[in-house]
Nucleic acid binder design. Sequence first.
DNA 1: ACGCAAATTGGAACAATTCTAATCTATGAG
DNA 2: CTCATAGATTAGAATTGTTCCAATTTGCGT
Lengths: 141, 141
Amino acid sequence: MANMAYDTPEMDAGARLKAARLRPTRQRLELARLLFREHDRHVTAESLAEEGARMGVKVSLATVYNTLHQFKAAGLLRQVVVDASRTYFDTNVGDHQHFFVENEGLLIDIPGEEISVSGVPNPPQGLTIDSVDVVVRVKRN
Amino acid sequence: MANMAYDTPEMDAGARLKAARLRPTRQRLELARLLFREHDRHVTAESLAEEGARMGVKVSLATVYNTLHQFKAAGLLRQVVVDASRTYFDTNVGDHQHFFVENEGLLIDIPGEEISVSGVPNPPQGLTIDSVDVVVRVKRN
DNA sequence: ACGCAAATTGGAACAATTCTAATCTATGAG
DNA sequence: CTCATAGATTAGAATTGTTCCAATTTGCGT
């Protein structure tokens, strides 16, 4: 297959890790399989560790934390800051934003084509924009 | 002075607490004075406690936390979620957004008139929008 | 001035995350 | 293929920000 994108959803865990220059250890492979099995997943370290446990994946919590951060650094995951008490990671690294359901800790994607932010001023001297994150906080009626 | 707004920057600490129906205890008064002395302040519980200590205000950390949350509940402060590890409070409760300088924990206001978000889809059935928060993450060059 | 609900407090408890030092493993060299 | 080694994993300790708790203090209406 010529011209495969750097990171596609169809890519298997091994290829993903290779593309990210991460050693394909058993733990990373198994976590990658869990994470990218489905599109647009939102996980926390705890939720992923739990899921792993349920699926019979033997990984320590420390490794889950390490792996999430490495995947993030490699561009395989995006970190989403919505809650002061937990960190979420999103398997969708493309342009998009989120609804966040308060009191439930639930994230829902908003496609990047739908939403748009305009009028962002130039940042003060010496600063460069890294990302523009929108969180639409919603509540259950 | 007729027609004073519910919450103006000129308002003294006592009036502010009265308007918010919070008992004017020494601690609340002193913290309110620190907080609203200047416009558009961004504090964390720790930073405010530290500032209090420096200014000779005797308040426990627990009270700082309590007070910040009560002020928030009363609409005197807005909570800003930008960092997974600390909670910030903003004395500007009007419509505006933020630059967040990563690695420095520094918040900078973006006036609400400058920035705007469009195309926010209707939230899924049963959910109502609470707020639309924009964080422009920036890095020092 | 009294009485009581509300507020404050120090310290214990907690939850999420990071650190540490020991052990294990993927990988490239020979 | 075998080895040496840098890199990865691990359990558990440590750290950090925050909340909880039970005892004491305080604001305020009567």
